[in-house]
Design a protein around this nucleic acid. Structure first.
Length: 910
RNA sequence: GCGCGGGUAGCUCAGCGGUAGAGCAACUGGUUUACACCCAGUUGGUCGGCGGUUCGAUCCCGUCCCCGCGCACCA
């Protein structure tokens, strides 16, 4: 037992040490052969290119807490980690790298050499986030780490495509899709973020063909697409324009006559009530085009520049430049009427953050499977969403579900396992619609290439990354694992990917396994900055969690995040940046994380205090056994509170109330145990105390730590493991993290009245202590430990607790002999133990004491007034529950007694 | 426009029918046989506004205002 334990807890070494130990002991491994009940989670796979954010910290801490708690409850736990290949993000990174280092594009290299580079890049830079998760202490089964482009996983992704092609769910067709001009690929609807933009509404006029000087006024936000106009449309019921329907309007450039048509879709109230119809560049226009058999003129290149259909002047011009130029040109032609400021929503590419283009293109689509079953599963709570309200969001999406565009014009990803017969390829690839039915023998859809590859061409596209991650809960597991751990127990994720991922996993689960993929989905909060903005790389408002771990420790960060993260709403993370003293480097201060660090330090020091007491501790915890009769009221009180804590945590875990658990753990240890219990036993730990008393006290001390550390472990795994060992609780080769929570409570079997009495007495002593400390502070004697008090006991048991009370109050003496004649003006106060005086030799200030008592009376009188009026209300007496009325009466009596005594005290001053 | 959250102490958050809470910040005091990453004490709240239900409302209901999010529309 050495006293040289450092005063301040130093987390970094401890954390590294224990993580290594856990790995060595294979403590994170989930055995498929186990006979225990299973508990399993699959990690929401972060991007292989990703780095840890506070969102990941929150999400993964929750998963780790669940996993560690489940182990302590005796479950066979398997938490499966991994990453996804993040098609667009990764490919862009590799392309940029290629451009910057070699000045080449991926096309310069060609498909296979480029993919080699991408794999090299992945091997070198991928998986940073995995190392970071380990720093956090995540108890994933690291041997099972998966990647969505692992060979076996890829096979299943392609199998999935083939399966749905054969079942008729997958088809290829020419459709209006969301096109990202930066990434040069189609996107799904979910990958488009609508953002409000301040733009302009251009009012322009098209001349009526054959009626010189007659114009039709049209409002548009996108003049740059007018070269693709193939009609002008009005509402058939719109009197203003009815006479024009059937005539032609003149598109100014390239000059052409286009029909004026009628369509219900046009809102006469909006703009001028006239719509220019550009079927190639707007979804609604496209539909009008189909209905009216309009020509489709695509004026844009894939990269967002204009093409030759736009005319020589515009060819090659960027779409935004072209917008300005088109407006200028209209103006020059005298066709621009006016321009208004206008706010509308513009779709942005989620990944590249540029406006997407609605574009007609040939893509693969999936008609979602198992929609009915999946909708019902959540509605019937077969799969439980927490907080439950997300079920509504899910239901809404499921009810309005649209076919999923699953092909991406990328190279990095799962290549679509479709080959076109070479001599028919062009026809097939340009077919309006292509599926199992229509393809016949002209398509080869299979895992293996056709036996005569020279006669076939493979589809160039890859599949959407989400088309691979929706298989994650089962495609990551081998048969034995699936048998043991599937369906998984919990899924922990952000509500922002409820459609991207959660909904799709449910559908895939039912389709491929016939079962739900998970029983519970816990949606975390979203972490924002001080101003309430989402954390983002471009804003630079996200502190690096690794810095925070260095500065405060992983346990501190975990605990702090759990303390501030409410269920189901957003949370603000405070970071104050300061210039460091000696350098220009910025240091950040995170008061919320300081709380966690302080708590770790408090824990550390309480255990350090225990060690400094010496004596044997360790396995033996028997304070509540044969030594029960000797327990003090404080012992019983703290053990009862610890029992209550265990109970409370159990319930809170069932409700996934992590913030509440953290708060309870904190309050118990800091307030109840350190502030009160440890203070009240210090006098029993003195060298001169009866060794039996001292020993018994230490046993209770140990008992509390022995019970508490495992409860705290899921939140602060490293420090608890360290202290568990330091305190000698550990059996040879055993880890705290593998220990089961005891089934019995500490005070099981103890007489109930005895427990209650102890708790009441303890509370009374605490209250008296508080009042005595308050008086001392009022008279600036807080630090003085020689103050003498007189007590007129109101209860007979006071004598037994006098020593403790003295210690807690910081009193030199508490005289209960009686017969004390307080000089006028002696500060006096009421406690549950009786009236107390604090004589002030020669320092009596009658006025001050009078004021103090008056203030106290005022406060009590206010309460009293409320209670009196309540009790005067006949309806209250009649209708309120009996206990409440009783309680109120009792309260009135006690307040009344207090007031009377205070009155007396005030009188005696006069 | 529809839907979902949230508005409680200066800040971050608890509480959600029966005497308004914590941490941080502020203020006063402190070389207490663990801890200054600490201890003791104090200040600070018409619980967003207005109605209603109730013996009683921060809590339930209605309505309005503000903030955030999702979906739809946007020529």
């Amino acid at each position: 037992m050495s006293a040289e334990i450092p005063k301040a807890y130093e987390p970094s070494e401890v954390e590294n040490k224990w993580f290594t130990r856990w790995i060595e002991e294979k403590a994170f491994h989930g055995k498929s052969s186990s006979s225990k009940d299973h508990y399993s989670i699959v990690i929401p796979p972060p991007n292989v290119t990703g780095v840890l954010t506070l969102g990941h910290v929150l999400n993964n801490t929750i998963q780790d807490i669940l996993a560690r708690r489940a182990r302590a409850e005796g479950k066979e736990v398997m938490w499966l980690p991994g990453t996804d290949h993040a098609g667009i993000a990764t490919q862009s990174k590799v392309e940029r790298h290629l451009r910057e280092t070699e000045g080449k594009t991926r096309r310069d290299l060609g498909r296979d050499p480029f993919l080699e580079r991408a794999w090299e890049w992945k091997e070198k830079h991928g998986g940073i986030i995995i190392k970071q998760l380990k720093k956090l202490g995540c108890s994933c089964d690291w041997d099972r780490e998966r990647f969505t482009m692992d060979e076996e996983y890829s096979r299943q992704v392609q199998d999935c495509f083939i399966h749905f092609f054969n079942s008729g769910h997958i088809y290829r067709g020419k459709r209006m899709v969301n096109w990202c001009p930066a990434s040069l690929t189609a996107l799904s609807d979910e990958e488009v973020i609508m953002k409000p933009r301040r733009s302009k509404l251009y009012f322009m006029r098209y001349e009526i063909a054959g009626e010189k000087g007659e114009f039709l006024e049209i409002a548009t936000t996108r003049p740059e697409t007018l070269m693709g106009d193939t009609a002008v449309a009005v509402n058939p019921g719109d009197e203003r324009y009815r006479h024009l329907i059937g005539k032609n309007a003149v598109r100014p450039f390239p000059r052409a006559e286009i029909p004026i048509i009628a369509d219900e879709h046009i809102d006469p109230e909006f703009g001028t009530g006239v719509l220019k119809v550009t079927p190639a560049h707007d979804k609604a226009d496209f539909e009008i085009g189909i209905k009216n058999d309009l020509e489709i003129i695509d004026v844009l290149n894939p990269d967002g520049t204009l093409n030759s259909h736009a005319g020589e002047e515009f060819e090659g011009m960027d779409r935004f430049k072209a917008r300005k130029r088109a407006a200028e040109k209209l103006e020059e032609m005298g066709l621009l009427v006016r321009v208004e400021e206008y706010e509308n929503s513009v779709g942005f590419s989620e990944r590249a953050d540029v406006p997407v283009e609605p574009r007609i293109s040939m893509q693969w689509f999936l008609r979602y499977p198992q929609v009915k079953e999946s909708t019902a599963a959540v509605a019937d709570r077969e799969i439980k969403f927490r907080p439950e309200r997300w079920a509504k969001t899910y239901a809404h999406w499921m009810e309005n579900i649209q076919d999923w565009c699953i092909s991406r014009q990328l190279w990095w990803g799962h290549r679509i396992p479709v080959w076109y017969r070479r001599d028919r390829a062009e026809v097939l690839q340009n077919a309006e619609s292509l599926d199992k039915e229509t393809a016949g023998q002209d398509l080869h859809v299979s895992l293996a290439p056709p036996p005569d590859p020279e006669n076939w061409v493979q589809d160039e596209d890859v599949l959407d990354t989400w088309f691979s991650s929706w298989l994650w809960p089962f495609a990551t597991m081998d048969e034995a694992s699936k048998a043991k751990f599937y369906p998984t127990t919990d899924l922990v994720t952000g509500p922002d990917i409820i459609f991207f991922w959660v909904a799709r996993m449910i559908m895939a689960g039912y389709e491929f396994t016939g079962q739900k993929p998970f029983a519970n989905v816990f949606f975390t909060s979203i972490i924002r900055d001080k101003e309430g903005r989402k954390m983002s790389k471009s804003l630079g408002n996200s502190p690096d969690p690794l810095d925070l771990i260095d500065q405060y420790g992983a346990d501190a960060l975990r605990f702090s995040i759990m303390r501030i993260a409410p269920t189901g709403t957003d949370v603000r993370f405070i970071e104050n940046r300061k210039k460091a003293k000696d350098s220009d480097a910025e240091q950040s201060e995170c008061p919320q994380v300081e709380e966690g660090r302080n708590f770790a330090n408090k824990l550390w020091n309480a255990c350090r205090f225990r060690q400094m007491q010496g004596g044997k501790n360790g396995q033996k915890t028997g304070a509540t056994g044969d030594k029960r009769d000797d327990l003090t009221i404080y012992d019983i009180d703290i053990l009862a509170k610890l029992d209550a804590l265990s109970d409370h945590l159990k319930r809170a875990y069932e409700g996934y109330k992590f913030q509440e658990i953290a708060t309870k753990l904190y309050d118990f240890f800091w307030s109840e145990f350190c502030d009160w219990y440890l203070e009240s036993i210090k006098l029993h730990l003195r060298e001169d105390v009866d060794p039996q008393v001292r020993n018994r006290t230490l046993l209770v001390f140990d008992e509390v730590l022995n019970r508490y550390l495992p409860l705290l472990h899921p939140f602060m795994p490293h420090i608890t493991e360290e202290l568990w060992e330091k305190l000698g609780f550990v059996r040879e080769g055993e880890l705290l993290m593998c220990r089961l929570l005891p089934g019995e409570q500490l005070l099981d079997g103890m007489n109930h009245e005895r427990i209650e009495e102890a708790q009441q007495r303890t509370a009374a002593v605490h209250e008296a202590t508080g009042r005595a400390r308050h008086i001392k502070a009022q008279y600036n004697l807080a630090a003085n430990r020689n103050v003498k008090f007189f007590l007129e006991p109101a209860v007979d048991w006071v004598v037994e607790e006098l020593e403790t009370l003295k210690f807690l109050c910081g009193a030199g003496d508490i005289d209960v002999a009686g017969g004390y004649e307080a000089p006028a003006g002696t500060p006096a106060f009421l406690t549950p133990l009786g009236k107390m005086y604090m004589p002030l030799e020669g320092l009596v200030d009658i006025k001050a004491e009078g004021a103090r008592i008056s203030k106290e009376m005022e406060r009590i009188q206010k309460d009293m007034n409320q209670i009196v009026s309540k009790l005067a209300n006949a309806k209250f007496i009649e209708r309120a529950p009996k206990e409440v009325v009783e309680e109120t009466r009792a309260r009135r009596e006690s307040l009344k007694a207090n007031l009377e005594q205070l009155e007396e005290m005030l009188d005696s001053l006069a």
